[in-house]
Design a protein around this nucleic acid. Structure first.
Lengths: 239, 239
DNA sequence: GAGTGGTCTAGACCACGCA
DNA sequence: GCGTGGTCTAGACCACTCT
């Protein structure tokens, strides 16, 4: 007997309704939602039930709640978009701001591995972005970013791209990145790594493979980063 | 005016009380807490307030709640202790079970970096554990674990140590590891790495530096792992 | 059927931000 | 002073587990 759950609590239904509204853009990033009272009245449930749904949304960082003011659709501001999923810090533990250098953008047919990772149809078009990131003015990370063109029409014409791509995704294309699945390996610098990051071939590199997942569960971005960790570390707290 | 918060909500006070009881061992791992009703009566608050505190504890994985049964003090079972903070998977994404080989345990005075990382007094004694971990029978990870002897009296006499150390820490010493701060870098295999992991010197290694933090906030363990990531990846989901 | 946690409601009051 | 979210209470009923 492996049945689907026979029943969804009311607050989960309210939660689903709110997520849909946000995904649709009925309330835009940065805007405030109706008050708990107003939502409760509109949906014919008690305020406590709305509250429970909103609290879940806040935990998942889809909304922000401010006592005395209201509940706001969370926004990937430039600042936060840069750091929410960016785990690299200088060795003292300080976040250094990455800047871009040497950006190239082109569109082409998706390769087999890209089709698989991003759940694309064969023959789909993608945009490939290559850019080197500087920390304290020195090249430290090389990123290759693969985007399905269908989800980001015309993004290859928007050069130069902003520092914080996730903010662009959210505001211009409505794709709200809410989770990132990362896989890390140690590798050796190849010739092209050495050139881009001013290293010797054979130097150790941290290779990071990230799939960015949007609010609706779609895999929206594949990003591979190759990082010189002689002056940086990837810091994460597990709990 | 940088004042301390003027007031702590009731449910936070209840939360603090419960954490203290668990830390003290008043309820032992695996045992059930009193029911919400009973706690509410004992503490003179409403059941809803107790519930809110228990829900926080459940989110932080200090307790587990089972509908129809009760609320239980979370337990680092062998199984879960192994995997809760273990992010290495085989490339298909499957968790492989590590086994131990070549374990050495000795006690000595703490070195400067250990004193700093574990907040020790100078001259404090530590236990150093070195062991190589096998995945699918092949050496893949070398761990060096530093423990303050004061927190783990006699642990150096307990060889061979179990596979899941965190379970031992919790049940035998009352140190409940609830968070791990990890820092990752790519490095090259040195001669001793090469010997232990059957690699060539100069092969890439993932170096993981972990501080294990206990329930009371104490830094209880410093663990450095050096991993051959040719057949493994470090997988983590950011959100 | 008894006891547990889970959901839902209604209402009172508190803390905060703003005009 | 008003409206917002935050806390706290009391009580009803539901879903689950075990006896």
């Amino acid at each position: 007997m492996d049945e689907a759950p026979h029943y969804r609590p009311l607050y989960r239904q309210v939660y689903g309704f709110l997520v849909k509204q946000i995904a649709d853009g009925s309330w835009r990033p940065g805007e405030s939602l109706p008050s708990e009272q107003a939502l409760a009245a509109r949906l014919n449930v008690s305020q406590g039930t709305v509250r429970k749904a909103l609290d879940s949304l806040a935990v998942e960082k889809l909304v922000e709640r401010r006592q005395g003011k209201g509940t706001y659709v969370a926004e990937h501001t430039q600042e936060r978009a840069l750091f929410r999923f960016f785990r690299l810090t200088t060795i003292g533990g300080v976040r250094a701001i990455p800047t871009s250098a040497g950006e190239t953008v082109r569109r082409r047919e998706a390769r087999r591995d890209e089709i698989q990772r991003l759940n694309l149809a064969s023959g789909a078009l993608v945009v490939e972005i290559n850019r080197t990131r500087l920390i304290d003015g020195k090249p430290a990370i090389h990123e290759r970013i693969i985007l399905p063109l269908a989800l980001f029409p015309g993004i290859d014409k928007r050069t130069p791209l902003p520092n914080a791509l996730y903010s662009l995704y959210q505001h211009e294309y409505g794709h709200n990145i809410v989770a990132a699945h990362e896989e890390l390996r140690a590798e050796l610098a190849r010739k092209e790594d050495a050139r881009r990051l001013k290293l010797k071939p054979g130097a150790p590199l941290l290779h990071i493979d990230r799939i960015g997942v949007a609010l609706d569960g779609m895999r929206v971005e594949w990003r591979t980063s190759r990082c010189d960790t002689s002056h940086l570390v990837y810091a994460v707290t597990l709990s």
